[in-house]
């Protein structure tokens, strides 16, 4: 599996470390039902078979956090973006993904 880092170019997946689902949003600690919200955030996963947006860290490269859109059945990668860009889009739109 090879990931095209937007900064470094195409690299083998052994250069990256994996964190998991990028769609998780840290709950507001002052929000309602906060214990359950944090339990869901820390432990619960959609775990889809198919398209998955996930966080990878280019640990042996530019040290960027990336959001990679990858198919968990075929391993085909359709999109790679800097996590900070994905996060700013999310904060602008108020969406969860």
């Amino acid at each position: 599996m090879r990931i095209v880092c937007p900064y470094c170019g195409e690299r083998g997946n052994e250069e990256f470390s994996y964190l998991g689902d990028a769609s998780l949003v840290r709950p507001d600690p002052a929000g309602a039902n906060v214990t359950q919200a944090f339990a869901n955030y820390v432990y619960m996963r959609d775990n889809p078979r198919g398209v998955h947006r996930e966080l990878w860290y280019h640990v042996a490269g530019c040290h960027s956090w990336l959001v990679v859109t990858r198919d968990t059945m075929s391993h085909e990668i359709t999109r790679v973006e800097f996590a900070r860009d994905a996060a700013s889009v999310r904060s602008l739109t108020g969406g969860g993904g």
Partner: peptide, 17 residues
């Protein structure tokens, strides 16, 4: 291998490791 997958096959870096 260390990433979410439903493919019943892995990648070469893990084989080497």
């Amino acid at each position: 291998d260390g990433y979410n997958t439903y493919a019943q096959r892995g990648n070469l870096p893990t084989v080497e490791d």
